[in-house]
Design a binder for these strands. Structure first.
Length: 418
RNA sequence: GGAGAGGUGCCAGAGUGGUUGAAUGGGCUACCCUGGAAAGGUAGUAUAUCCGAAAGGGUAUCAAGGGUUCGAAUCCCUUCCUCUCCGCCA
């Protein structure tokens, strides 16, 4: 959510933002509605003031005068009620429109119509040269008995999978390593609630527009798609002190995604599944663009370092306008090399929001001058499992069908080979 | 699932229809007092929004929404949340 004052004063910028993000949003509709809102409100407030003054008088006046004043106020009240009714209708529409106002992308965000227009800004690592025909992760893992897609589909349906045996041990090795790695970066690990109230999804910007991608319970709660949601909700309606910023959290949670719009995509394997696990970095910091930028680079770099320590070739892209979420100012994706497909696949996404989310969630802090301000927020994937396994397994596959683990993981796994 | 209690400002805690943005106490801030401090004294101490250059003023907010009323923290309804006990249960 943006400040209505800012929107009114910068409607050309909002228009450009919507265009760049390829969103159909007409700021003029909102401004017109806001004009209505302001007019109604100022009218209503004037009459309420009159009402309040008279109400005070009524207590200290003779019975005669009192009944006269009361009948006068009855008339004021009737006209008030009509306007209050109109205002209520206006406010409902106003709030819906306000939730659809896109945040402004940074100048450095490239223009583009889809993720195909994301621009590579960095490439790291040497792509493996196999002396044999490399297999895909499905074949490798199935043969090693560390994944079972057939039974996964039997139990869950489309996109179902079991991880078994060393597949599970490998996940735990990654998780333990990730916990150590990011703890050293001074992130506080958090296991959040995974069933969350709607407010958290609206607050982070996933709702109201993303309803069909989210699992819902019969109580009207939602299953989280990322730990970002509860971690952001954690400080909702709070006033933090400047000294406790930045807050750096490392959330770990299962992630549930319906993938409703992606039925034909990535139909096999561990790339796109309905449930997975993810470590997520979340930061709340002071409301300052440079600070946001600094932490944005930092969280992205953290994940790059983690991948580098695993020795998996990757590249980092800056996402184009169309590939940005409603609230995102700028986003980097880290994509890992997948040998069998001969292309990079996304495993991480780092973005910052300025105060877009914190306005919705009402997360504020008192700055050095004592002024209340909305904090800035940002988040980035630390590491997702099992998606990371796709690249890990394919890049480290051996001619005999085994997987040779990178040194650091072997330490956590207990053996060098699967 | 059953039964009950409750949600008021930074905190504690009054307040059952009008002068209550809200007593009182604590905290905090400034000043006075002091050689300095403690104690004591005085004043101040919410947020949002609108008007205004500012001073200042209007409106709203006592969980949320709705209702009754000229007027609601106070009465009525709905919802949400918290707590306690019982039951069930990893």
């Amino acid at each position: 959510m943006l400040d209505i004052k800012f929107i009114r004063e910068n409607k050309e910028i909002i228009d450009l933002a919507a265009k760049k993000k390829r969103l159909d949003f007409k700021v003029d509709e909102l401004i017109m509605l806001d004009d209505k809102r302001k007019a109604l409100l100022s009218n209503i407030e004037k009459r309420r003031a009159e009402q309040n003054v008279t109400s005070d008088k009524i207590t200290s006046v003779t019975a005669d005068q009192r009944s006269k004043l009361i009948s006068e106020m009855k008339i004021v009240k009737a006209s008030l009620e009509a306007d209050e009714e109109s205002l209520k209708k206006v406010m409902t529409d106003w709030q819906l429109l306000m939730l659809r106002v896109p945040n402004i992308p940074d100048m450095s965000v490239p223009d583009g119509v889809s993720d195909a227009d994301n621009e590579e800004i960095k490439a790291w690592g040497k792509k493996p040269n196999f002396t044999f025909e490399p297999k895909d992760h499905i074949e490798i893992m199935t043969k090693l008995n560390i994944v079972d897609f057939e039974r996964g589909a039997k139990v869950h349906g489309f996109r179902g999978y079991f991880l078994t045996g060393d597949g599970v041990r490998l996940c735990f090795a990654i998780w333990n390593y990730a916990l150590d790695f990011f703890s050293k970066k001074e992130f506080v690990p958090v296991l959040p609630p995974n069933i969350v109230r709607k407010i958290n999804l609206v607050g982070t910007g996933y709702l109201p527009q993303g309803e069909e991608d989210i699992y819902k319970t019969q109580d009207g709660d939602y299953l989280l798609g990322t730990a970002e949601v509860p971690l952001m909700g954690m400080h909702g309606d709070e006033v933090l002190t400047a000294s406790e910023l930045p807050k750096k959290y490392l959330g770990f949670s299962p992630c549930y995604r319906r993938e409703a719009g992606a039925h034909g995509k990535d139909v096999r394997g561990l790339i796109r599944v309905n449930e997975f696990y993810k470590f997520e970095q979340v930061i709340l910091c002071e409301a300052n663009h440079e600070t946001s930028v600094r932490y944005h680079e930092e969280v992205n770099r953290n994940t790059e370092e983690f991948i580098e320590s695993l020795g998996i070739p990757y590249h980092t892209v800056i996402n184009c306008g169309a590939d940005l979420g409603l609230g995102q100012v700028k986003k980097y994706d880290i994509e890992l090399w997948v040998p069998k497909e001969s292309k990079y696949r996304e495993i991480s996404s780092a973005s910052y929001f300025h105060d877009f989310q914190t306005r919705r969630l009402n997360i504020r802090y008192r700055d050095a001058e004592g002024t209340l301000r909305y904090a800035h927020s940002l988040n980035s994937t630390a590491i997702p499992t099992p998606r990371i396994l796709v690249s890990l397994v394919e890049n480290y596959q051996q001619a005999d069908g085994t997987i040779k683990l990178p040194t650091i993981l072997a330490k956590y796994f207990g053996r060098e080979k699967i």
